[in-house]
Design a protein around this nucleic acid. Structure first.
Lengths: 154, 154
DNA sequence: TGTGAAACGGATCAGCA
DNA sequence: TGCTGATCCGTTTCACA
């Protein structure tokens, strides 16, 4: 299932700005509006586009500080990992969670108002889960997005 | 600079789907279209909303594998970190880069077609930068988004 | 800040290549 | 798959509260 070059142009434009009008999108990729509209619909339907979203600056919402929390779990089983994720991932300060190979089983990225809040979250929500063996917290100094996601050259 | 509750409703709706019409957004938050439109404009202008984007599944673009690469740099200075970021962050396989406190100075998240490509990227792009002392690569088994970003309760 | 209405521009659909 | 064009609907702007 390879992505045609027109769809790649559509994806690039929508990643850059998902709120452009269908008309402008059609002009950019050089197709009629109706055709463009249909292609976008299919990209969503087939799961290539997972969602349209607004990115919000956590600092503007009163969470100027971010941290990574590396978590080691005791029995390193799929079940334990899933249970742990379910216990923490819905907390409002969690930005995302990554399940990993290696020493660290799960890495959480959190956005908080203060270092106090990191401590509260770490003790109250993370180490309180019985299967958590140990954690390490690292302050995030800076976070940069990579380039727009594009299809691999072939 | 605290966020009024109407704006919080707008942010929640736009994070969930940035392509809803202004009319629907207005209906959801219970304001006139013109007012809603103006509020969204201000949220963008003041930097609360950083961009509207389409999230794309890397696997659908031929990059089914993800990894985290932890990087340790030699002189741990702001300049060295910036130079390193500039050297790697625009590579198409980079999803994002995080600058950290602690042993690891920078953590890269990459999406690739195969483990071969991770190796190529690691040797060709990362360890080839002179200030890179060492790296560790970890496979990403799963990645979960946290809840919609909302303002801290006050 | 908020409203409602008019002018403008975009989305959508049927019919066709 | 793709285009065209008519109709319908949403957005934007404005005078006003």
């Amino acid at each position: 299932m390879t992505i045609p070059s027109i769809d790649r142009a559509i994806l690039a434009a929508l990643q850059e700005n998902s709120r452009i009008s269908n008309r402008e999108l059609a002009a950019r990729v050089g197709l009629a509006e109706s055709t463009t509209h249909e292609r976008v619909r299919r990209l969503v339907e087939t799961g290539v586009i997972t969602r349209f979203t607004a990115e919000v600056d956590p600092a503007a919402l009163g969470r100027p500080m971010q941290a990574l929390i590396a978590v080691q779990l005791r029995p390193q089983s799929a079940e334990v990992v899933t249970r742990f994720l379910d216990a923490v991932v819905d907390d409002p300060c969690v930005l995302d969670a990554t399940v990993l190979s290696g020493e660290t089983d799960v890495q959480l990225r959190v956005a908080v108002a203060s270092s106090e809040e990191i401590r509260t979250f770490a003790w109250r929500k993370v180490t309180s889960v019985p299967s958590v063996r140990s954690i390490q917290t690292h302050i995030v100094y800076e976070h940069r997005r990579g380039p727009t996601l594009s299809a691999t050259a072939e």
